[in-house]
Design a protein around this nucleic acid. Structure first.
Lengths: 256, 256
DNA sequence: CATCGCATACATGTATACAATCAAATAAAG
DNA sequence: CTTTATTTGATTGTATACATGTATGCGATG
């Protein structure tokens, strides 16, 4: 788990300070479902729970509010935000748009062929994990490779603003590519899903390599559509859903 | 000026508290060019300058860092961020992508025809300002209408994540639609530029009305391309450039 | 019995005091 | 004269104390 968090832009810089620890702790508590949607987050209980003063906690809560996981109460303070299904579809659609744009820009702005090295390595190594259902740590390795592939595409887009926008979208845990991939393993159609996803990766890589911007964009967009389909299936199965981090923040309609 | 600021989402809620005032003050100081790019923003001088304590100032600086106008120094504290020309083109291109997506979604998700009322009002009223070069306050009115038109399109997209992403892009002052429109008035080709921009508005409105998603997206994308062309012209004229808020944050190459 | 008003308790927003870390300047040694 | 080590200064990060505003519970009154 730690290796996956350390890879993100935030993880590295924010450790070593009380504010950073508080931020990571509260975010993890939110994803784990320690609080209910709409619940008020008071600072003093956090002081008792985390062992840090109010000031860093306030900083952390403010940043989480900017990230969209909390919202400011009109009377002051913060409450846990709740997400509707529409929010989730919206986030995934936006991820498709942004990653599609990233793939297109990567194709259009590709300089030396050397830049594709990391992308090719991720793709080849993921191929090895396709055949037999492997152990749990090799599965985690697959998730890392998946994230690395997507991150590499965005890096090739050479667009800081695109990076920022996508980072913001990915703060919603269920919008992350690995979120649905995580649940994919428990589905009956797991093998086919993995194959289709990897085929998308192949097309994206090939399109970028041959500087086919429109094709790369379409493939990346389709790839997010796969996430959408999988999540749709997952939402019907509460046991699988519990594997997705942050699932407790989803306000389900008509809970039986 | 105040009316334009009050319209944004931030302006309303953040007034009435010291943190909000500090945030608005520092942001305005940054846009006005009170600090040079790369300059360190210390807290104590801010205390003396704004008359508020360190805590709200720290909160405000933290939020400005999240907005992208400041960046955290590795040794702690904040420094004024500098923007390259590449950053500006990047931001404008992302604005084109996002507004294009917004226009497409608006066309695809249009419900009752009644939803177009505000868009039509903005468009019609902007037509009135096209002919003779009017006074300075009617020009400000045109800016408001322009912003309102763009905001209305995004609202019709019914996508909170798109709204958030676009808000983040628009934190860069020169990426805002009104920024270049502001400079447009001083250009020799002003009249033609206004006409072309308004023609774009017409196509966007017409495409949304007839639920032509691809056409709406293309028109909106082209509209941001117009911003890009205008800004390219403006960048050659330092006198006009000084009218654009936040221009001092741009790191110009090869300053003669 | 319901409703309005008041008081109390609590939570947030702000200010300030303290500590640790980083930077620069100065002095000493090679 | 240069380089390095040490000291000093300042600035950030953190903790806590204070004040203001809000919500809740109790009592009084219609």
């Amino acid at each position: 788990m730690n290796s996956r968090e350390a890879k993100t832009q935030r993880g590295g810089t924010e450790l070593g300070t009380q504010t950073g620890r508080a931020l990571l702790s509260v975010r993890e508590m939110l994803f784990r479902g320690d609080f209910q949607p709409g619940e008020r987050i008071s600072e003093l209980p956090m002081v008792a729970r985390l062992g840090v003063s109010r000031t860093p906690i306030r900083l952390a809560l403010d940043r989480l509010a900017h990230e969209g996981l909390l919202e400011v109460s009109p009377s002051g303070g913060f409450v846990v935000r709740s997400f509707t299904l529409a929010d989730i579809w919206d986030a995934i659609e936006m991820r498709g748009v942004l990653e599609g744009t990233g793939a297109r820009l990567a194709a259009e702005r590709l300089g030396h062929d050397r830049e594709l090295t990391e992308l090719r390595q991720c793709f080849e190594e993921m191929n090895a994990y396709l055949g037999p259902v492997s152990s749990i740590d090799s599965f985690a390795r697959y998730l890392d490779l998946n994230d690395a592939f997507h991150a590499a595409v965005i890096r090739l887009a050479k667009s800081p603003m695109l990076q920022r926008s996508l980072d913001q979208v990915l703060t919603l845990p269920f919008a992350q590519p690995s979120a649905v991939v995580f649940a994919r393993a428990k589905l009956p159609e797991a093998a086919e899903m993995f194959a289709i996803g990897q085929e998308h990766h192949r097309v994206i890589l090939d399109a970028i390599e041959h500087r086919q911007g429109a094709r790369a964009e379409a493939a990346a967009r389709e790839h997010s559509g796969l996430s959408r389909r999988i999540l749709k299936t997952v939402l019907d199965d509460r046991e699988i859903l519990s594997c997705v981090p942050g699932a407790s923040l989803i306000r389900m309609p008509a809970v039986v």
